[in-house]
């Protein structure tokens, strides 16, 4: 009996299996790619305005913004900057022009965001008056926006 030829059970050294590790990492990457949501809903309230406080907790949606200052109205998506005193006395030519701009803005939106084109986010300071708010809402309806979202800060209840 040749004892040298008997093979003993050797302990195999631990080997790192790279292929399954790469598979797992690929899965993790795919999962993160699919589940990551990049939220682009961010409203920057102008520093000159103090937001009103609301107890409602509705979710914020990404709609075009109109900012109502105490003396004028601004809407960058319509290239609009107008004193509030002129909103009620707007000429039909100007109104037609704003309607056209609103229509152009709507047509540029892709199909998935069609719901954004009939809604507006209205930002106003809490000390602004109802007359200005109503006149602005009336103007927006005249140029084709159907629904106004009034933006306010949520009251943090302790």
């Amino acid at each position: 009996m040749d004892l040298n030829e008997i093979s003993y059970n050797r302990r195999k050294p631990l080997a790192l299996q790279l292929a399954p590790m790469i598979d797992i990492f690929t899965l993790i990457i795919v999962f993160l790619l699919k589940s990551t949501v990049v939220a682009d809903v961010a409203i920057v309230f102008p520093s000159q305005l103090e937001a009103a406080v609301s107890t409602q907790k509705d979710s914020l949606e990404s709609f075009p913004e109109i900012i109502l200052y105490n003396d004028h109205l601004e809407a960058s998506f319509l290239d609009l900057k107008k004193p509030l005193s002129e909103i009620n006395n707007i000429s039909s030519a100007e109104l037609t022009e704003y309607k056209r701009k609103a229509e152009v803005f709507r047509s540029k939106s892709d199909n998935f965001s069609k719901s954004t084109v009939i809604n507006i986010n209205l930002l106003a300071g809490r000390d602004n008056n109802y007359k200005n708010v109503f006149d602005t809402v009336k103007f927006l309806r005249q140029i084709g926006f159907q629904s106004i979202q009034f933006i306010a800060e949520n009251e943090m209840k302790q």
């Binding site: 409602q56 809490r126 109802y130």
Partner: peptide, 19 residues
Amino acid sequence: ALDKEASYQELVNVMDGLK
């Protein structure tokens, strides 16, 4: 409808109550 001098804050409070 609110009074024309009513504030935007008052409008928000009323809307919160009605919503």
